[in-house]
């Protein structure tokens, strides 16, 4: 009987140990380090195909503030030079690198404004767990309705007199944001796990700085065109130029 008890105890203990080991191994999180002589990636996102026209939104609401300027859909903005605006470029699977920069001026903190019944900017980057400022510059009721997949979902009213609120998101992901009252309003909150994220400007340009030298996978995501990747090598104190070519056919 003693042997039995001994064997059983041993068995149960080993089970517990296995269980503990299995549940403890958390996924590798991004670790900030001092980056000296880091490299830079600059690049441009180009569109291939027939240039899509900007679509003006037909605004039905009577609220004057929504008619202050013509509103265009920002789902696919391509410049005359065929460059793609609002593409999100990031380094995939980077585990160590520079720390997030805390903006000196609180005004420079990540902000999503509601102005002229348009979310501004169309795409905003925010570090996970850090506050995202929501502004209502319009003085009419807006609601910030988020459609996350990994985070808790929120639908928050911002009545006219409420000028500022903050929200936080714990898990990195791309979250679509809408307003139920003004249905053309759409934005994306990109919750980031590391600072190597950039959004292409109206000339399709982007830049990532202070990257520890090494080989990386660079990822671009566009809400209409989809997701693409390419390999890049970053050298110390050097600039690497990259071009992404996106087309509607390549979309998955």
């Amino acid at each position: 009987m003693n042997t039995f008890i001994r064997i059983t105890t041993f068995g149960l203990l080993s089970l517990l140990l296995f269980g503990a080991v299995q549940s403890r191994s958390a996924p590798d999180k991004y670790k900030p380090i001092d980056v000296t002589s880091g490299g830079t990636i600059t690049g441009v996102v180009r569109f291939e195909g027939t240039r899509p026209n900007l679509e003006q939104v037909d605004i039905k609401t009577k609220e004057d503030v929504c008619h202050s300027e013509p509103v265009y859909s920002e789902n696919l903005v391509v410049s005359k030079e065929m460059k793609v605006h609002w593409a999100v470029v990031s380094l995939k699977n980077i585990k160590t690198g520079k720390a997030f920069e805390e903006p000196k001026d609180p005004k420079d903190r990540p902000t999503l404004d509601q102005k002229g019944c348009v979310f501004k900017p169309h795409i905003v980057l925010v570090e996970r767990g850090k506050p995202l400022k929501l502004l209502n510059s319009d003085g009419v009721l807006h609601n910030v309705h988020t459609w996350p997949k990994k985070n808790r979902s929120k639908n928050i009213a911002m009545p006219g007199p409420v000028k500022e609120m903050t929200v936080k998101f714990r898990r990195p992901e791309r979250i679509r944001v809408s307003c139920d009252i003004h249905r053309w309003m759409e934005a994306w909150i990109i919750v980031t796990e590391h600072p190597y994220y950039a959004v292409s400007d109206e000339k399709g340009k982007f830049e990532l700085t202070d990257i520890p030298p090494g080989k990386y996978t660079l990822r671009v995501w566009h809400e209409t065109l989809g997701e693409f990747e390419q390999e890049v090598e970053v050298k110390a104190n050097d600039k690497t130029s990259v071009e992404f070519v996106l087309s509607e056919e390549k979309q998955d």
Binding site: I7, F10, G11, S14, F18, Q22
Partner: peptide, 23 residues
Amino acid sequence: EYFVAVIVVIIAVSVFFVGCQTK
């Protein structure tokens, strides 16, 4: 007792693999 030992090992191994699966 040996059977018990064998059973315990089998259980431990299958638990281990189940653990791997969820990871």
